Computed example of a mutant assay.
Amino acid sequence: MSDAWLWLGLFILLAYTLEAITGFGSTLVALSLGALLLPIDDLLPVLVPLNILMSGFLAWRNRHQVQWRLLLATVLPGMLIGTSIGYGLRHWLDDGPMKLGFGLLILWFALRELLRGAPQGHRPSWMTRLQTGAAGISHGLFASGGPLLVHALAGTALDKAPLRATLLCAWFGLNSLLTLAFLHDGSLAPALPRIGTYAPLLVLGALTGEYLHQRLAEGHFRTAIHLLLCLCGVLLCWRA
C-alpha cells in the first residue's frame, strides 16, 4: 500500500473509535480526512461497504427501537430519490468540485454543531421531505448524508434512541444500494482487497471506543472532532 492508503487506515481506526465514543458518523470523519490525500471516487467504494458492517450490526442490535412508519414513509423515499440523483451527478463532476462541495458540507455541519443553540420547533412535513431529499443527494455524492438528514428530522418528536436506530436502518439500506451500484460500475472489485485489510480496524475501533466511552468525557471528544472537521473543510475548499 502507498503511504496515502496507510494513512487512510489510521483515519478509519480514528473514525470508528470516535463513533463508538460519541455516536458520530464514521464515514464523514474518515472521508473528510481521507479526501485530503486521495480522490473521493477512490475512497467511497472502500468506506461505504465498511460502513455496512457497522451500521448493520448496530441496526440489528437496536431493531426494537426502529420507527418503521417514519423510516418507510418519510426517510427512505426522499433519501432513495436524492441518493439516485447524487450518484448520477458524481459522474459529471471531477474531484475538484466534489472536494469543494464536500468541504462546504462538513464546514456547515461542524460549525453548526459547535455553535448549536436551542432546538428548533416542528417543521412542516413538506420541508422535512425537501430536506430529506437534499440529504439523499449529499449521500449519493459523498455517502455522508447524515448531517443533513439529522437536521431535516430535528423537528420530529422522536427521542434520541429511536431516532438513532431509525437512521442506522436507513444507512444500512442506502449504503447497501450504493455498494451494489459500485459493483455494477466496476469500482467495487478493485476495492475488495483494501476492504478486507481495513475490516479488522472496525472491531479494534469499536472496542477501543467502548473502553474510552466509559472513562472519558464525551463532550470534549465532540468539540475536538468538530474543530478537526472545520480544519478539514477549510483545507478541502482551499485545495479544490
Rank of each mutant, 00 (worst) to 15 (best):
C237D: 05
W5G: 04
M79K: 04
H226M: 11
A240N: 13
P193C: 07
S125L: 12
G219P: 10
L168H: 08
L80F: 11
P119M: 01
L229W: 02
P39Q: 08
L174K: 01
G88S: 12
L105M: 07
L44R: 06
L174S: 08
R63Y: 02
P147T: 00
K160P: 05
L130G: 10
G196P: 00
S138W: 03
N175S: 10
T74P: 00
I52D: 06
L153P: 04
Q67Y: 12
G205S: 10
S32K: 08
T208Y: 02
L153V: 03
A143W: 03
T223E: 11
W171R: 14
H122N: 01
G9W: 04
H139T: 12
L202N: 01
V234G: 09
I225N: 04
D42V: 03
K160R: 05
Q214C: 04
I85G: 11
L44H: 00
R123C: 04
L201F: 12
L28N: 01
L80Y: 07
Q120C: 11
P39W: 05
R61S: 14
D95G: 14
A157F: 01
L38C: 10
C230N: 10
A189N: 04
G173Q: 06
G205F: 05
A59Q: 03
L178K: 14
G23M: 03
G233F: 05
C237R: 10
G86Q: 03
S125A: 10
P39G: 07
T17G: 02
T128E: 04
L148H: 10
Y16K: 13
H184E: 14
S125F: 00
S55T: 15
L130N: 11
